[in-house]
């Protein structure tokens, strides 16, 4: 069904299209440059030039690996919510809060009405797309997750905040489509953390994507999917990108009980480990997927973003995805 949508958008993808979830590790020179920039030792332009260099590197690597749907690798982003919050009117940035261990971050605060004034990701998407003939995904974070990962000092409740943000994200979707983007991923990693709020997440995504002419993917991870499945299938996207390997494919059991009705970007490689799963293990995961899911709807990618891995590890994990996917195309 969604394959027809892809074709109507002029996208002819092979069976088992390969992609990645969004982020890639920043090369050492960029990681150092970001630290230097924070200490005001280099200019914004210097940093920007290096971000472009790193983006070009990752586009080239994805091309070499033979990936079908590319990403820009988010070389210019630190965090998937903070990037937007730092640029959208309505947000301020809090003092440091702990994420885990010795890691702290500045959590955004919704302190007044949120608004969209200017595109936030379009120039980066255009740049990345200019470097390849293959489709590059537009990469956004959904209104529900931005709400959940921010403090809210303005809106009366979580629903109002999520819906206001969903409308803002819609503006960015419109800008990406106007620029020529045909596949847009809107990540909602917070989707399953409060199962009782699934209706809010559904409403928010509806506000963002309804009537928009693009193929939409959402990525979700780390959650209690048993509590939101099959209700989550009502999310207004074409493709769910799910972390399958890290949970030993236990979501397949849910899919057995109630058919999975969307396309799926099936995470076949664990991203939390330094080592790459063997080709045999990755192939086995796809085989198991195909016992339940129609092959026309299965995309292949790593479980999650690869930014916490080294450049070499990330490339190896991507290679494992591509090798496995290609081996199934010929069968």
């Amino acid at each position: 069904m969604s394959r027809q949508k892809l074709e109507s958008l002029g996208l002819k993808l092979p069976l088992f299209p390969t992609t990645s979830v969004g982020s890639f590790p920043k090369p050492d020179y960029l990681a150092k440059a970001r630290a230097e920039f924070n200490k005001k030792r280099i200019s914004e332009k210097d940093l920007h030039d290096l971000e472009r260099k790193a983006t070009a590197f990752w586009i080239e690597e994805q091309e070499k690996l033979g990936i079908d749907v590319l990403v820009d690798g988010e070389m210019y982003r630190g965090d998937m919510v903070a990037y937007f919050a730092e640029r959208l009117p309505g947000f301020s940035i809090s003092g440091l809060v702990r994420s885990y261990g010795n890691r702290y971050y500045h959590k955004p605060i919704i302190s007044s009405e949120v608004a969209w004034r200017t595109p936030l990701t379009v120039d980066w998407w255009k740049y990345a797309q200019s470097l390849t003939k293959k489709p590059v995904k537009g990469m956004l974070t959904g209104g529900y997750t931005i709400m959940d990962w921010s403090f809210n000092e303005f809106y009366p409740d979580r629903r109002s905040a999520a819906l206001a943000l969903a409308k803002v994200v819609r503006k960015e979707v419109e800008a990406l489509i106007a620029a020529g983007c045909k596949i847009i991923q809107i990540d909602e990693p917070a989707l399953s953390v409060r199962p009782e709020e699934l209706p809010i997440a559904l409403e928010a995504m509806d506000l963002t994507t309804k009537g928009q002419n693009a193929y939409f993917i959402t990525h979700a991870c780390y959650g209690e999917f048993d509590k939101i499945y099959p209700g989550m299938l009502d999310l207004a996207v074409d493709n769910f990108d799910l972390e399958m390997s890290n949970s030993d494919l236990d979501l397949l059991e849910l899919f057995r009980r109630h058919p999975f009705t969307k396309d799926i970007s099936f995470g076949v490689v664990d991203v939390h480990s330094h080592r790459t799963d063997s080709g045999e293990v990755v192939r086995k995961r796809i085989e198991q997927a195909l016992t339940i899911l129609p092959k026309e709807g299965v995309w292949v990618d790593p479980d999650c973003g690869l930014k916490t891995r080294t450049v070499e590890q990330a490339i190896e994990k991507l290679r494992a995805c591509v090798t496995a996917a290609k081996s199934f195309r010929n069968e």
Binding site: R98, S99, Y100, D148, W149, A190, V193, R194, Y222, G223, H272
Partner: peptide, 12 residues
């Protein structure tokens, strides 16, 4: 390994 602690977006 790390697991998310409830809906806090922090990990244990």
């Amino acid at each position: 390994g790390l697991v998310r602690f409830f809906d806090t977006n922090t990990y244990f």
